[in-house]
């Protein structure tokens, strides 16, 4: 699949944003007054900024409000509702932290759970697609949730939470790659079943239907750049997991440590998310003899 910057930025930053908002909502970040305002602002900025990035993926962004209408069947519609509901429910918690109202934290815990549910709806947009076997697996929502919580933990500045969540990510990320690599073969589709000609014999492409790439090939058959996948995985793992973990374990706590760890981590997550799209093979590629 085409790793469009809009969807990569959307999933990475809204994921990290909602993960961070979950930590703030649950009261796991110790801050009050203007410091709390700044942290909440950062959380909202990441989540809303990510959502805004997704709008640039649309062919007709003017009509984007219509995306709220089909929550009964569409995960994209559910995501729109979940995001708005979560950001609305979090507002009184943010206000309470900022102004020191000390309103009950149970409301914040509920909103924190909704943050994770929102990330879940984002992941289901991809997980629901049978046509992309790499995504159509429970490891996809698990990895999105762990990415979000790891991002949230890193931004929270809490050393123990950061270390714990990065270790979990360190296990889930290789699992995501390992499971994903075997998915296309596991589904058992091939050019034979795509064309229905497999019963006769071995099917190969004789001639392409058009001489230069079309929308399908640009959007769903992204072969370019996959050759660097192995090296990018090492880079993504090092930046998303190992480097921020080392920073948190070695450096003393403080805003500089948070900033450095977050920068390293989010860069690594961007690389991992680029791979999530670039390495995903759509079954339509079978018709073109490409994956």
């Amino acid at each position: 699949m085409n790793p469009a910057p809009s969807v990569i930025l959307f999933t990475v930053f809204s994921g990290a944003g909602f993960g961070f908002l979950a930590f703030l909502g649950a009261g796991l970040v110790d801050a009050s007054g203007w410091a709390a305002f700044g942290l909440w602002f950062l959380g909202y900025a990441l989540a809303v900024g990510g959502l805004l990035a997704s709008v640039f993926h649309l062919g007709n962004p003017r009509r984007s409000m219509r995306a709220f209408s089909q929550w009964r069947t569409s995960w994209l519609s559910r995501e729109a509702w979940a995001a708005v509901a979560t950001l609305t429910l979090l507002a009184p918690v943010a206000l309470s932290d900022w102004m020191g109202f000390n309103w009950p934290r149970s409301w914040g815990l509920l909103a924190a759970a909704l943050c994770l549910a929102t990330v879940g709806t984002t992941s289901m947009i991809y997980t629901q697609l049978k046509t992309v076997p790499r995504w159509h697996h429970w490891i996809t929502p698990v990895s999105f949730a762990v990415f979000a919580l790891a991002g949230g933990a890193v931004l929270s500045g809490d050393g123990r939470w950061t270390a714990a969540m990065l270790v979990v990510l360190g296990i889930v990320l290789p699992a995501l790659w390992q499971i994903g690599d075997g998915r296309f073969a596991a589904v058992g589709v091939g050019i034979g079943s795509a064309t229905g000609l497999g019963a006769i014999g071995k099917v190969t492409v004789f001639e392409q239907p058009h001489t230069s790439p079309n929308y399908l090939m640009r959007e769903m058959i992204y072969v370019v750049g996959r050759k660097h996948a192995a090296r990018l995985r090492v880079l993504a793992y090092g930046l998303a997991v190992v480097a921020p973990l080392a920073v948190v374990l070695v450096l003393p706590g403080g805003p500089a440590r948070v900033a450095l760890a977050a920068l390293l981590h989010l860069t690594g997550v961007l690389a991992a998310r680029w791979l999530f799209f670039a390495q995903a093979e759509h079954v339509v590629g079978l018709y073109y003899g490409q994956r």
């Binding site: 649309l58 995306a67 049978k130 399908l216």
Partner: peptide
Amino acid sequence: ACIGCGLCAWACPYG
């Protein structure tokens, strides 16, 4: 009513 998100094209196995 189409916003051009492209998700339906992603969901179609047949292009």
